[in-house]
Design a protein around this nucleic acid. Structure first.
Lengths: 118, 118
DNA sequence: TCGCTGTATCGACATCTATCTAAGCAAGAG
DNA sequence: CTCTTGCTTAGATAGATGTCGATACAGCGA
């Protein structure tokens, strides 16, 4: 099952925080994505997936990097998936995860700073 | 008191998630910042501060934009402050908040995506 | 068919979080 | 000095979250 989430409005995005006041609607769409990134384990999981050679990583490769049980890793991956940050596909016995670049780029763009004021 | 936080290692940052596996140390430094952004209210607060004409906003300007009590707004501002995302200064009766561009830029850069793999 | 391995879900627990009301502190006005 | 206003802190509470062990499901191989 590639996605189990309520489809986090992928198109809503992109105007930098500092350029115009963020509408409540966008805030409510984007906040869960940032919240998903708000855990060191998930940040590292995302990084491991993003840096994987083939662009995707098997759960069996991700799990041993942490001192956490399988269910916990599975839970974190689910959170990232429901935030629209990653996507998964089952091939045979294994499940592979890969990032959703557009979603991550949207977050990055939101945080774009015009220039260091200092 | 401009900062009450344990000084969130400002220098640690910047290498995009997809370029190298995020070290646990960086993950633990950056995750709280993302977590701070993981709330719609805080996202909008940050945006309001960032878009303020003078580069700073008074609490009294921020509060009426939300259906929340003063203490709650104060709490959210504290979270953003402890995450190193904003900074505050008292001038007379009022307290003014402004963003910390370097910190926000670091988060943005972390999420930089090399290219849409599609 | 049966069992084995890789993932996901379930249920439980301790901890954290968002919000409120009430109270405290700081600065200016009278 | 005292009152008022702006903001923060303290304490309380309902709900969310991270983690686990136990269990269930999906595919492969014998």
């Amino acid at each position: 099952m590639p996605d189990a989430a309520p489809a986090p409005a992928a198109a809503v995005c992109c105007t930098p925080l500092a350029e115009q006041v963020l509408p409540a609607r966008q805030a409510q769409d984007l906040a869960p994505a940032f919240k998903a990134l708000g855990d060191p384990v998930r940040l590292q999981l995302l990084s491991q997936i993003a840096t994987a050679d083939s662009g995707e990583a098997c759960v069996c490769d991700l799990t041993p990097a942490f001192n956490l049980t399988g269910p916990t890793i599975s839970h974190h991956l689910k959170v990232l998936r429901e935030a629209g940050l990653i996507d998964c596909e089952r091939r045979g016995t294994w499940v592979y995860y890969r990032v959703v670049p557009s979603r991550i780029a949207a977050l990055s763009q939101l945080l774009t700073v015009p220039a260091a004021a200092s």
